[in-house]
Design a protein around this nucleic acid. Structure first.
Lengths: 135, 135
DNA sequence: TGGTATCAGTTAACGTGTTAAACAGATGCC
DNA sequence: GGCATCTGTTTAACACGTTAACTGATACCA
């Protein structure tokens, strides 16, 4: 419950900015993942952007229809779909990234760098603990 | 991002159990809020279960169709809709509550009570900090 | 080599999150 | 009393989360 509230509060900061650029939070996650590691197939992209496959399918279709990314089939394995940023997609990323970083910096300033680091560490640990317990 | 992952990991524990009882996470939040404080109007219920009004409208319609809650109009202010648990709703809550508590206890055991308390405190603080900054 | 299991991705169905707009009941002001 | 405004709730539209079922391609193996 507290996790949900905290996450909503954080996203409330980012959403309006992304909206101004015509993106949702998840679409932004996909562009960011592709900037880090372009030309990967859908499974890899799903893992890196923490999206489930059905969501990613819809998002990729949407972004492709706006020419922000391209999709082609892996020649070696016809099942796989390789996704890449287009020049247009990269330009959009470059326009948004400074705003995104500014919002992160603002949160860091308000909440305090050390406390934020501690929170990150606890969250990552919490995540790992629960994942291990599932097995 | 870490917030999202942590929340997903936590809900992955609860969802299957709730699903066995035919509820979603949000429907469960509504029942829990009504158990704490019955006969409140929709705005109050939305605040207590941390749902937006449109979501709550749908959920209340759904739960009402399954006779788990009842809805009537406030006599003093015809705009307000007063929501209450039915006997059936209360019985369902009583059946689920022990499972829910067991899952919480399990998480507490795996992650550690003190660390969980620290995490709660940081999250609540994070939430408040961001909310204050919005004003 | 052919049959079967597995894998990558998609589609479908349902419920929720978010935003904007619509709506009726309440309130305030002249 | 009539009219603009505000409030509580609902509806609509679009996108995502989750689960399950489906399709086509690949791998395995008797």
């Amino acid at each position: 419950m507290e996790l949900m509230k905290a996450r909503e509060a954080a996203m409330a900061r980012f959403r309006p900015m992304l909206r101004d650029h015509g993106l949702t939070e998840q679409q932004w996650r996909v562009l960011r993942a592709l900037t880090d590691c372009d030309n990967i197939d859908a499974s890899e992209l799903a893992a890196r952007s923490f999206l489930l496959a059905p969501s990613l399918t819809r998002i990729v279709q949407h972004l492709e229809s706006e020419a922000l990314i391209s999709r082609r089939q892996n020649a070696a394995d016809q099942r796989k779909a390789v996704v890449a940023l287009t020049a247009k997609g990269r330009r959009l990323f470059d326009r948004i990234a400074p705003h995104s970083e500014a919002l992160y910096a603002q949160i860091e300033k308000e909440f305090g760098f050390d406390r934020l680091e501690l929170l990150y560490e606890l969250l990552a640990d919490f995540y790992q603990t629960l994942r291990n317990g599932d097995a």
